[in-house]
Design a protein around this nucleic acid. Structure first.
Lengths: 256, 256
DNA sequence: CGGCACGTGCGACATTGTCGCACGCTGACC
DNA sequence: GGTCAGCGTGCGACAATGTCGCACGTGCCG
């Protein structure tokens, strides 16, 4: 079939599927016939579109229809409950392995909202942070979330980069450089930007297609997170990034 | 990156792009960074999404935003003016080569609307059909449009398959079989289903991803369209299908 | 006026999507 | 109630396809 080179065939086809489904509920065969595709190919496209929530399948008639994900494009996107649900188990394991407290965060408006919090194993003198709002520019979680979300950076900068300690990044340029490093490494390190003597290590949690929807990280005294040269301890970084990948896999896996 | 096998990567990625753009206008670089993709890949996805109308590019800032095509999923889709515009030149050439009158049609509600009409070269005693509504189940144009649009078939059947001649297909089963043949061949032949002594040959005009958006065909006396065994003359079929492919290519090409 | 960073395009490679085939299953017709 | 046709689904091999590195031209900022 005539196909314009330089354009991605499967995306064109999926848009055709969506336009077809806009007209009404259809069976796999009908879609395949309408687009002159083998059943397998049409089914593969439908499976993918279903996975990302753009189409849904009627459990009774086996017909496909447009999904809620299309409408949510105007809204927020993934809801936070799902993120928390998927991350629960992994967060406990991370706390056990790293020996530090664990937080899971997501971006809401211009703040980092803590959707889950696990205490440090051997220390019960901590306050539950779940639901609390943190400043994106001064925390490891925030750095990760900002690094993969350009509009949020603008908002944060316009809101003013408030200084909490001497090391808080208050200049837009410093912040941009830190976010660039974060992207390059795939994880963030924040040292005494929020509270003196404390720091954090965090990594991104991704959804379909690599979209960053949250962050997971540990926090604790600088001397436990870093070596004498203020570099993050590799073992801890590995634990954090491995956990983030695990949650990502979980999130991209079986649909709720 | 962790990627679930059996699902189509590029579609997942494009949905991530759309979700990102839902948050605000973004530059290519920002999207690439957010999804950890090379600029080229992000640009390729964006180019495709722009082509199908799901995203648009701000001519000034070069930023990308969500396009109107997403909203039009609820509407009709391609508007008929564009179809007519693209088909104009080709229709004249088809009339010249085939020596018959040419019609271009599209489906509106449960009827075939004639969006363009070219008279037969050597015969001026004809009425202009542009804008007229034809029955889908009794015309070559209609057969093509129904063959690739299952919901429309249901509607047509429910509306009742009115008989215009002795050969009109009035049984849902006969109609379904005729549509199946049409799909297999890629073109339709209608003989005396609408007017005695006359018939038509038509082929589908497709848009992005193979979606059928219209049909183009010729009509005339049966003895000129068919041989003695009432089979369509191959030369005429070639002219019609070649023209349909040309319009398809034109439609998938430069965006208005 | 120089330098940087961005959007864009091309080409080669290797990954990826496509397609043919087969399995169970449901529903219809006899 | 039995049989058969048609559907949705899944797997595997192949080749077409999407991806990625690189380079060009351009506009903005310094």
């Amino acid at each position: 079939m005539s196909h314009v080179p330089g354009l991605i065939q499967s995306i064109e086809r999926s848009s055709a599927v969506l336009r077809l489904l806009a007209a009404g509920r259809l069976r796999v065969k009908e879609i395949a016939d309408a687009l002159d595709l083998p059943k397998s190919t049409a089914h593969s496209i439908l499976r993918t579109l279903e996975h990302i929530g753009f189409v849904e399948q009627d459990t009774q008639s086996a017909r496909y229809r447009l999904g809620r994900g299309l409408l949510e494009l105007g809204d927020g996107g993934l809801d936070l409950n799902e993120l928390r649900g998927r991350a629960l188990n992994w967060a406990d394991a991370l706390a056990a392995r790293s020996g530090e407290e664990v937080r899971i965060g997501a971006l809401r408006d211009d703040r980092v909202v803590v959707v889950h919090h696990v205490f440090r194993p051997d220390d019960s003198m901590q306050s539950l942070d779940t639901g609390r709002l943190l400043p994106p520019h001064a925390t490891a979680l925030g750095h990760v979330l900002l690094a993969y979300n350009a509009p949020a950076v603008e908002v944060a900068v316009r809101a003013g980069l408030e200084a909490y300690t001497r090391r808080t990044l208050t200049s837009p340029r410093d912040l941009a450089r830190a976010l660039g490093e974060t992207r390059n490494r795939g994880w963030s390190l924040s040292v005494e930007e929020w509270e003196a003597g404390r720091g954090g290590i965090a990594a991104p949690v991704r959804s379909f297609g690599g979209l960053v929807v949250g962050a997971i990280g540990i926090s604790g005294p600088v001397e436990r997170l870093c070596d004498t040269r203020r570099q993050a301890r590799p073992a801890l970084v590995d634990h954090v990034t491995a956990t983030a990948r695990a949650v990502t896999r979980d999130l991209s896996g079986p649909r709720a």
